[in-house]
Simulated assay, not measured.
Amino acid sequence: MRNKVEFDEPRCVSSGLCVMAAPDVFDQRDDDGVAIVLIEEPGDDLIDDVREAVTICPAAALRLVRE
């Protein structure tokens, strides 16, 4: 099984909370602050940070799925 980040870009409100929670996995575009997924399939070492980012996203634009 692998972990996969799903990101609904139109829902993103550019809060930056995902970047603060998981800076190795998320970043923000310079021009509008919309999130960028750097690692779509994060390893187990990053999962706790990604779960936190998913939980605190104010727009519910992130999901973590196991495939």
Rank of each mutant, 00 (worst) to 15 (best):
E52P: 00
F26K: 00
P23G: 01
P23D: 00
N3K: 09
V34E: 13
D44S: 14
V13T: 14
L38Q: 07
E9V: 14
A61G: 07
D24F: 06
V34T: 15
T55L: 13
I39R: 10
D48L: 10
V54W: 04
E9P: 05
R2S: 14
R63T: 12
V19K: 05
Q28F: 01
E67C: 11
G43R: 07
E9L: 14
R51Y: 03
V50E: 01
K4Y: 09
R63A: 15
P58K: 05
V34M: 14
V19W: 04
I39Q: 12
C57L: 04
F7Q: 00
D32S: 07
D8A: 13
E41K: 11
E67K: 12
L64I: 10
S14E: 05
L62P: 07
F26E: 03
A21P: 02
D31S: 10
P23E: 02
V50R: 00
A22K: 00
V13S: 11
V5Q: 05
D27R: 06
G33Y: 03
L17K: 07
E9S: 14
Q28A: 05
P10M: 09
T55V: 08
E40S: 14
A22Q: 01
Q28M: 07
P10G: 08
E67H: 13
M1A: 15
V25M: 07
D30V: 07
D24A: 12
R11H: 09
S14I: 00
E9Y: 09
L38D: 07
F26M: 03
C12L: 08
C18I: 01
R11G: 07
D27A: 15
S14T: 06
P58V: 11
G16S: 04
D45F: 10
A21N: 00
V65H: 08
F7K: 00
D24I: 00
A60G: 12
C12D: 12
P58F: 04
A35S: 14
I36L: 13
E6H: 13
M20P: 02
G33W: 03
E6C: 08
P42Y: 03
